[in-house]
Amino acid sequence: MTVTLAEEIMLLSLDDESGAAKDKASAAWAVAGGILLDLALAGRVAVADKRLRTVDPTPTDVPLLDERLRKITDWSANRRSAKVAAWLTKDQSKAPRATLDSLVSRGLVAEERRHALGIFPVRRYPEADGSVERELRGRLSGVVLHGGTPDDRTTGLIALLHGAKLHRIAFPDVPRKRVEARMAQIADGQWAGDGVREAIRDMQAAMVTVTVVTLAAAAG
């Protein structure tokens, strides 16, 4: 089964048994970035000079991506400067829900609804089919821990995880120091094509910008 980068990040962030999300705030930025990078890899959008534009509105036939492609096209149409950071800021609160719905529809996670303290509605997404996540974690281990050569999508995934500081959800049983340098090397390396590398760089820069702004606002 082929899954999107956003779905892969979301699977990594969910506790398999409880279905609770870990590092929710950081994962939300990475999920939004994953959708954007998949659209760039599919040739539907271009990310350059920290700006975003639609280059081909043709549907990809992946509902999660096509919904965002329509939104990006409408959003950027009347903007002189459609910055990547502005789109990620806009979409990071919405992309996780759309991604979870996609995982449920694919049968990879189950949706459980309950009320905390009998009052507050809570949704959890425990694992329903672990085969995709097992393959994913095996692929990440092969590249990061055992020196394998990543393809474009794996390079993008590792770059997004590294940029959002999600080392712990990717490698929960491995000390961060052991994986951080290798993930940075991959994110900054020459494995991906020029267009993908530029998209990764711009999205990493955007995530750093919005993270700093978010933390400053919280501190204020």
Rank of each mutant, 00 (worst) to 15 (best):
residue 15 D to Q: 07
residue 87 W to Y: 15
residue 22 K to M: 08
residue 183 M to E: 09
residue 118 G to T: 05
residue 93 S to P: 02
residue 19 G to L: 09
residue 36 L to H: 01
residue 211 T to V: 01
residue 54 T to M: 12
residue 126 P to K: 06
residue 96 P to Q: 04
residue 10 M to K: 03
residue 160 L to W: 02
residue 2 T to W: 09
residue 86 A to Y: 09
residue 169 I to A: 01
residue 83 K to D: 04
residue 201 R to K: 14
residue 21 A to N: 03
residue 24 K to E: 15
residue 172 P to S: 09
residue 132 V to A: 15
residue 180 E to Q: 13
residue 154 T to V: 15
residue 122 V to I: 15
residue 2 T to L: 08
residue 212 V to T: 14
residue 117 L to C: 03
residue 61 D to A: 15
residue 119 I to V: 14
residue 202 D to N: 15
residue 31 V to W: 03
residue 78 N to H: 10
residue 173 D to V: 01
residue 28 A to L: 08
residue 94 K to C: 00
residue 63 P to Y: 02
residue 204 Q to L: 13
residue 103 L to F: 01
residue 162 H to K: 03
residue 168 R to F: 02
residue 155 T to F: 01
residue 47 V to D: 05
residue 138 G to Y: 00
residue 19 G to H: 07
residue 79 R to M: 00
residue 37 L to K: 05
residue 181 A to R: 10
residue 47 V to C: 07
residue 177 K to G: 10
residue 73 T to R: 15
residue 125 Y to I: 00
residue 104 V to Y: 10
residue 29 W to C: 03
residue 123 R to W: 09
residue 196 V to G: 03
residue 124 R to M: 08
residue 57 P to D: 15
residue 112 E to R: 15
residue 160 L to D: 01
residue 143 V to D: 06
residue 143 V to Y: 10
residue 137 R to P: 07
residue 97 R to V: 06
residue 82 A to C: 10
residue 29 W to V: 04
residue 135 E to F: 08
residue 57 P to V: 09
residue 169 I to Y: 06
residue 154 T to G: 08
residue 108 L to E: 07
residue 76 S to G: 14
residue 164 A to L: 04
residue 110 A to S: 13
residue 157 L to F: 12
residue 93 S to F: 07
residue 20 A to M: 09
residue 50 K to M: 14
residue 201 R to I: 02
residue 94 K to T: 09
residue 108 L to W: 12
